[in-house]
Structures are given as structure tokens and as C-alpha cells.
């Protein structure tokens, strides 16, 4: 039995994180969990980016005592991911602030409840009686 090479293991991990995060984003109902799923997907993307510069047997891109120790990995994806991680936490804080606002305005962070209350508000703003605008035909059916 031959083992898959190290890169395949790492690529599988990165793609799995991305898929798990996206599945959580699509299936999630709680807004906080959506933020968490976004963080997981972001971690997968970061790993995928850094992996694109990885070569087996190469050294970290840092000179030891002024000498080049040997072949080194690509420093550019690492620099990009370095800034992306810090941006990620800023975006996460912004999303959480929005969730706090939603919680205050609608009293819930569950998407289904939120959608129902949002529609109620829209109906009230449009002057429609509640519970008639949706799930009902626009005109009476001829008998």
C-alpha cells in the first residue's frame, strides 16, 4: 500500500475546510454560526494559497546568519496570507457588529424567524394586512 504524498494530504485538508465552511454558510440558520462558517472557509482558502508556494525539502524564506540555507519556499503567497488573516478578523468583527444590530432590531439571530419578522414589517409598511400577502394567490380564483 502506497501512501499519498504529503501535498495530497495537505490539499485535501484545505479543500475540506473550504467545503465545510461553504456547506455551513449554505445550511446554517444561526447568524453567529454563519460567521463561524465564514471563518472556517477563510482558513481553508488561506491554507490553499500558502500551499501553492510549498515545495518539499525547501526552507522557510528566512536567511540564517546571512546565508541562503538552500532552496526556499515562495514568499509571495505567505505575504499575501499574512495580511489576509488580519483583514479576516476585521471583517469578522464587522459581521458580528451587524449581527448585534440585527439582534437588537428584530430580537432574534435565527434566519427563519428573522425572515418571518422581516416580511411582517414589509407588509405593515406596504399597508397590507398580515398573513395574506404571501402564500395566497394575488387574485381570487374564478369559481
Amino acid at each position: 500500500m502506497t501512501l499519498p504524498p504529503l501535498e495530497i494530504v495537505l490539499y485535501t485538508g484545505a479543500v475540506s475546510l473550504l467545503i465545510i465552511g461553504l456547506a455551513g454558510l449554505v445550511m446554517g440558520d444561526n447568524l453567529v454560526r454563519l460567521v463561524l462558517a465564514l471563518a472556517v472557509a477563510e482558513a481553508g482558502v488561506n491554507l490553499l494559497l500558502v500551499l501553492s508556494g510549498f515545495r518539499q525539502g525547501a526552507f522557510a524564506p528566512i536567511l540564517l546568519e546571512g546565508r541562503v540555507p538552500g532552496p526556499m519556499v515562495d514568499p509571495i503567497p505567505q505575504a499575501l496570507v499574512l495580511t489576509a488573516i488580519v483583514i479576516g478578523v476585521g471583517v469578522q468583527a464587522l459581521a458580528l457588529a451587524l449581527v448585534l444590530r440585527v439582534r437588537r432590531a428584530y430580537g432574534t439571530v435565527e434566519m427563519r424567524t428573522l425572515r418571518a419578522r422581516l416580511h411582517e414589517d414589509l407588509d405593515a409598511a406596504a399597508g397590507l394586512p398580515p398573513e395574506t400577502s404571501r402564500n395566497a394567490p394575488a387574485v381570487e380564483r374564478p369559481a
Partner: peptide, 17 residues
Amino acid sequence: FVIIRAPDVAMTEAAVG
């Protein structure tokens, strides 16, 4: 990240993430 020779990114991820 440490295993794939990216110590800078590893530090950021540990501190931030």
C-alpha cells in the same frame, strides 16, 4: 503552517485566529 515552512503565517494565525 509551521509544517509547510511558513513561520510568519503560523504566528499570525496563532495570535489572530
